[in-house]
């Protein structure tokens, strides 16, 4: 028996099932609408204050420390990046539409995952549909399949949002460097995979610990808020997955790698917890 083969089969079936549910279609539509609104706002900003942004970008391109005005600007901007001027510089270097859109992905993706996947385990335990599957494959394959399917959902939503933003930007901003923007969106899409996996794994953990869908949704919402508060604290902030988002923006590959590794570790810990729970609980 091949657990991976079973996991893919479960993932495919689960994905097809999810795409037929009204709840998922509704949240997907809202997510894409948010992406479109974000793109519209960013295009509006770019067209209204594009010249000033261009100047700031030129100032920021200058080597750090050589231009006083640029340094002042970067310091002001680093307020948004937790005081990290390197990341602030990296943000300024990128087209506004990419910066703004990646920020919105990092902000809204956990919410989308919570809303669409909060009952990924307990929903099937409640109606006992897992019992039709569990004499044919292992609990590990079931969990793997569910994880792959819900991660794919998040990535499909992100990919669609990326495409929407790219098309909208290309139509409304003829001056937008299409190749550079596409490359950056692709890069951030790839960096979004471990980030999404972390939140899918956390959602799976909570969904395997609690038997009620609404209760797991509320718990995940509270956890998200706790992580938000934790991330503001310099002593224990590292415990929050939200604290490591900024590293994904960095131009320094080592920092990006660290951030990706941290998200993979978080995902691994949450997933291992889910596996431990799911292989021991009644289903």
């Amino acid at each position: 028996m091949n657990a991976w083969q079973d996991a893919w089969r479960i993932a495919r079936f689960d994905l097809e099932t999810a795409l037929r549910t009204r709840r998922l279609v509704l949240w997907f539509a809202i997510y894409l609408l948010v992406a479109l609104i974000t793109a519209m706002v960013l295009v509006k900003i770019e067209t209204s204050v594009g010249d000033q942004i261009g100047t700031l970008r030129a100032l920021a391109q200058a080597p750090a420390g050589t231009d006083e005005e640029a340094n002042k600007f970067l310091k002001g901007l680093s307020f948004l990046t937790g005081g990290d001027t390197e990341i602030a510089l990296q943000m300024v270097r990128m087209p506004l539409i990419v910066t703004g859109f990646f920020w919105s992905i990092l902000t809204f993706l956990p919410g989308l995952i919570l809303l669409t996947s909060h009952d990924m385990i307990n929903g099937e335990v409640r109606n006992r549909s897992t019992r039709f599957v569990l004499l044919r494959t292992t609990r590990t394959a079931l969990l793997l399949g569910k994880t792959i399917s819900h991660l794919s959902l998040a990535l499909v939503a992100t990919l669609l949002a990326n495409l929407l933003v790219l098309i909208y930007g290309a139509v409304r901003l003829p001056s937008m460097p299409l190749l550079q923007t596409s490359g950056l969106l692709l890069r951030f899409f790839a960096l979004g995979i471990p980030y999404a996996l972390c939140w899918v794994s956390l959602t799976a953990l909570v969904s395997s610990l609690l038997d009620s869908g609404p209760r797991s949704l509320v718990t995940l919402g509270v956890l998200l808020m706790v992580f938000q508060v934790l991330s503001l604290n310099s002593d224990v902030g590292f415990l929050s997955p939200l604290s490591h988002r900024l590293g994904l923006w960095s131009g320094d590959l080592l920092k990006v790698g660290m951030s990706v590794a941290i998200y993979l570790i978080f995902a691994g810990v949450f997933w291992a917890g889910t596996w431990w729970r799911i292989t021991r609980r009644d289903l």
Partner: peptide
């Protein structure tokens, strides 16, 4: 021994959308 056993579980429902 998976796949060598099959069962009709009581009160199990399959996916409502499939």
């Amino acid at each position: 021994p998976l796949r060598r056993i099959s069962a009709l579980p009581q009160d199990a429902h399959f996916h409502p959308e499939r």
